[in-house]
Write a protein that binds this DNA or RNA. Structure first.
Lengths: 204, 204
DNA sequence: CCCCTCAACTTGACAATGTCAAGTTGAGTT
DNA sequence: AACTCAACTTGACATTGTCAAGTTGAGGGG
């Protein structure tokens, strides 16, 4: 009665390659984009991936597990955004620094919900090693790009925190305040102006 | 059978002064503190305030209404924290600026969940006029304190955004990263150091 | 004093959700 | 052919937001 080639009544084949996990994460990201975090649920991810309501729990254990996986994937995209801009920039450390800031902003503007979610302070699954890896990667990009500006004998973290705080604060405030359209048209030039106020020097 | 003076079986008197609304907001803030936003629900607020599960909907209409009220109350506390520090500081504009930054940080450290919630990007109830008032108040404090540093002929918003981005970014990152205990012992001195990197001058 | 009104709730119901326990299934191993 | 076990499915339950309808008791008008 049931023809396995008929898409109608046929059950989808079980996957043994872990591809469902990836699909669930992608579904979650879509939901986050469309409906914000309120609309993000294990069951809706399951529905979009075409599996039963409890399937996500097998891969993620619980909501926190799904959140962690989505956040990890977001950090990948985040790092990619910064890296892409950095590659395109010249070798001058100031250009590189501005480039990653641009990547930072671009990612947030292009993926507002993901950005807010990543930096929401949600507890993540401490078991998830992947999350640590990808979030450290983002910090590493920042750190590398700041390195030329570290003055001898000072803690590199100081300048890193200065830059990071400034670009993050600027970006985060822009994302939180959806209204105030005043500056949103050209946020990068303003950030460029802000960076001019810093008295640090590259030691090239 | 039922003695109105007996606290046991007696129904609480109906309030006509709107005090339940305040109680519900306080309950919500307590829940936010104890269990984070995951644990915050209309029904739990109702339970803590000793009313029926649907009572909050009367005052807040829906979850967004409760969120907006809690956020508004948080902004009040936030402004009070900055104002208190500012009052205690001397008249020197730099001292005042450092004072409100200290108030900013103090509030976040003392009320982490509230701080994260206020700046979570959650949509708020646009009907709620109170929310606009109290959030504008916080921006006003910042603006006033930055005023002495605005150079003639420049847009005040530039320096405001610079300061605000820096202090917000620093604070927000500290709140998001619960781990990384490295600097958390003395965040303010570090912020003070960061501010030194700025080349703006007060025109006193 | 009685009756009316209406703000401030309460009660009851429903659908959506997270989570858990138990069942199923089918590919690979022995 | 029997076994195993990863990858799910099914079913159930408690919690939650939201809505419709009911209740209640203070204050006002007659």
């Amino acid at each position: 009665m049931i023809d396995s080639k008929t898409p109608c009544g046929a059950k989808p084949p079980r996957r043994r390659d872990g591809s469902l996990r990836k699909d669930l994460v992608e579904a979650g990201i879509s939901i986050l984009r469309e409906k914000g975090i309120e609309g993000l649920s294990l069951r809706e991810c399951a529905a979009r991936a075409g599996v039963s309501h409890a399937a996500p729990a097998y891969h993620f254990k619980n909501l926190t597990g799904l959140y962690t996986a989505i956040s990890a994937r977001s950090f990948e995209l985040f790092s990619e955004s910064m890296d892409a801009k950095r590659q395109k920039a010249g070798q001058d450390p100031r250009d590189q620094l501005l480039a990653i800031c641009e990547g930072y902003l671009d990612f947030a503007v292009g993926h507002r919900e993901l950005f807010l979610f990543m930096f929401s302070g949600q507890d993540m699954d401490p078991q998830n090693r992947d999350f640590d890896t990808v979030s450290s990667r983002a910090y590493q990009i920042l750190s590398e790009t700041c390195a030329p500006f570290v003055e001898a004998g000072t803690d590199p973290e100081e300048i890193e925190l200065l830059i990071w705080s400034l670009v993050h604060g600027y970006t985060h405030l822009a994302m939180v305040n959806k209204k105030r359209p005043k500056r949103t048209g050209a946020p990068l030039p303003l950030l460029r102006d802000l960076l001019k106020h810093l008295d640090f020097r590259s030691r090239t």
